[in-house]
Design a protein around this nucleic acid. Structure first.
Lengths: 393, 393
DNA sequence: TAATTAGTTTGTTCAAACAACCAACTCACA
DNA sequence: TGTGAGTTGGTTGTTTGAACAAACTAATTA
């Protein structure tokens, strides 16, 4: 309540933003409906809308259906999909994922570029290439509006603070790209982007106040929505559950972390070791499991058990409305979700929190980044924006 | 942003509350200073203050010092300490703790009543007795304003949902006491009350956005301040870290919880068992430790190690600005705090979060309850209120 | 006395509310 | 099929009221 609005100018500004949020969340929508939703007089809404239209963010789509008891047809308003676009990147282990979205969150394009064994400095020109490619299409009035990067590590104040899988070479991504393209550039932890995706792109999550996603990739991390907003922690390290230690294990075992037991890398290594260190990747493990391989099926059973415990521990800490699992491995073996849920339910006495699998986790991360940077572009950071209608995945 | 203020009436109401918050947090304060702090015109502040004065919450204390370059003396405003009082209870294992506070959070009285081996239905008349005793003093204009109860268990929607140490006998505390005394009655988990104490009563915590308290009593629980407000979880079960399981321990060890290793009860039992089951209490353990008893000092060393791990795990999850320990056992053996901090720092690679001990943890719980119910009385739930100046403990 | 600061009084401002209007539709009924 | 009553969406011109600004009073220092 420190930076609350206090005078009429601020109130006016906020009301303009509220109207924009209404257009965003309920497009196509008429002025009269906005007036009812916001409990503002219809003439007030008309006047506020006029200001928004001058900014170019919104447009009229034409007339809608009249009420079935008569009356004038409403004019339907919507976000201007030809205003501009954001570019959203995800640094995967093998591929750089790229998504282009308009101001409303629609996917304009998706592609991936092979970056295996490349250094960051080798990847940067590939990103420039993508940005220029998008600029050449030139089918919007304002072009590139913002850029987001999903980082498989921790981020604080728009800087990468820890990146175990990609050496950063002292590159300041935000600085480099803002200076070069003169648009907002946003860095966000991959699990955080994923949980923003669940909040903003999943219509069925609209009424959830507290959401937890658990990302199982090369490491393990959690993303947290608390009271409808992303919780990053004081140093951007909230949700780093993979670094948890075993309580009660004795002082000799102080270094074994959760992600040493059940990250994707850990599972693959376990199986590989049991098989005379033959090199394996995720696809190999999936095939071994489907062939009924003894070693693999035991490793997966342990993984299921440990995942259930991780869910018990994190839900005991956060008590969310729902838990989402974000894991390419589980996605490849969908039955694991219900096995994990069963194991979890056996461990908790009373309240059991629903566990769901996020499909197409790469899209989730990119769309989460899109939602975050779009808010920044529109200066709507504190508003609830529903991108769900636009997610034609 | 769903329940944002939109019209001038709501704005006016909020501004009245902002002025009240200023008086509360900076008393004694003049109108002109409030005007500067809130960036509101001084005539506006004067007018808003007039409304507040009619409610009786505030009063004029007399004149302050004039500026040293000349000018009229300011009139100092403050919270009306004779408006009324709240009564705040804490159900301890041995004692019922009772505190009476005025609207500003000053401690008017503190006492404890022996309730060992009493059932809740035997305790209730003792509470009534305390309430009547306070009423007889009758030195305020509005008398009893609100009641809070700190619960050593979980609370959801003002109902006790889990109470391992005191059988609730289906008593609805909130219902019973609101109906009987016609004031707001608030139930809150003890760790949650403790963390509210840290936020509201500790001046040095004023700028902390995220605070974590770990309560070690008969069980282990955490209290969470996130973005300056109490986070209770969807079902009031956030911070139930005592129920966490060991990841990687094998399926045979699914039931051992964190609090089975290092609650106060667990430590005492460990030592007791090693000594042919002689019955021990906390004071006995403290004395054994101070006498250098071998068994006890080994048990405490393990406790220190496990506490450090618990702190690692919870800070990995929440990434707070600071951690406060709330434990009568640690309070009795103050050197443990630094031992725990040292062990913790040895376990974390980079960012190390300060660990502090909450002194007089019973007071903390009661004052936290006071802060919560006082907000409710004043209808100032969403405002930052600083009770620190008043805590003359 | 002049300069300065606190607080009040009085009149102004402007964004939201209101009231009256126009526009455009449905539906019943002739 | 044509008309008019009823309904709904949106605009226009006026009113309202909380915050503001300026001019005031009050009380201080130097």
């Amino acid at each position: 309540m420190a930076n609350a609005i206090r005078n009429r100018m601020q109130l006016h500004q906020q009301n303009i933003q509220s109207v924009l949020a209404q257009v965003f969340n309920h497009q196509p929508i008429s002025r009269i409906e906005i007036s009812r939703n916001l409990a503002l007089n219809k003439s007030t809404v008309s006047s506020l809308y006029k200001d928004l239209k001058e900014l170019g963010y919104v447009e009229e789509l034409g007339e809608g259906e009249a009420s079935n008891v008569g009356g004038r047809k409403p004019v339907l308003l919507a976000i201007n999909r030809r205003y501009g676009y954001t570019l959203n990147f995800d640094f995967g282990y093998r591929h750089l994922h790229i998504m282009q979205n308009n101001l409303s969150g629609d996917i304009l394009s998706y592609s991936q570029v092979n970056v295996k064994n490349l250094t960051l400095n080798q990847i940067l020109p590939l990103i420039d290439e993508q940005i220029e490619k998008a600029a050449k299409m030139g089918n919007t009035s304002h072009g590139l509006l913002g850029i987001s990067f999903a980082i498989h590590g921790t981020v604080d104040r728009n800087q990468v603070t820890y990146s175990p899988f990609l050496i950063m070479d002292d590159v300041d991504l935000a600085k480099r790209f803002t200076e070069k393209y003169q648009v907002p550039v946003l860095l966000e932890n991959e699990a955080n982007a994923a949980v923003v995706y669940e909040r903003d792109f999943n219509a069925s999550n609209e009424h959830l106040n507290n959401i937890l996603t658990i990302s199982v990739h090369r490491g393990i991390g959690a993303g947290l929505i608390i009271n409808q907003s992303l919780y990053r922690g004081t140093h951007g390290e909230a949700g780093e559950i993979g670094r948890s230690l075993q309580v009660g294990a004795g002082a000799d075992n102080n270094t074994k972390k959760v992600e040493d037991y059940c990250s994707e890398d850990a599972i693959i290594n376990q199986i590989s070791e049991a098989k005379d260190n033959i090199p394996l990747n995720r696809q190999d493990v999936v095939e071994l499991y489907q062939q009924g391989d003894e070693v693999t099926s035991r490793a997966i059973a342990t993984f299921v058990e440990n995942m259930a415990k991780i869910i018990v521990n994190t839900t005991n800490s956060f008590d969310p409305d729902a838990v989402f699992l974000n894991s390419p491995l589980i996605e490849s073996l969908p039955e694991l979700t219900s096995r994990i849920e069963t194991a979890y339910q056996a461990m908790v006495p009373s309240i059991s929190i629903p566990i769901k699998l996020t499909k197409n986790s790469h899209y989730a991360t990119l769309l989460g980044g899109c939602a975050l940077v779009t808010r920044q572009v529109l200066d709507m950071e504190d508003f609830k924006l529903n991108f769900a209608a636009q997610a034609n995945v």
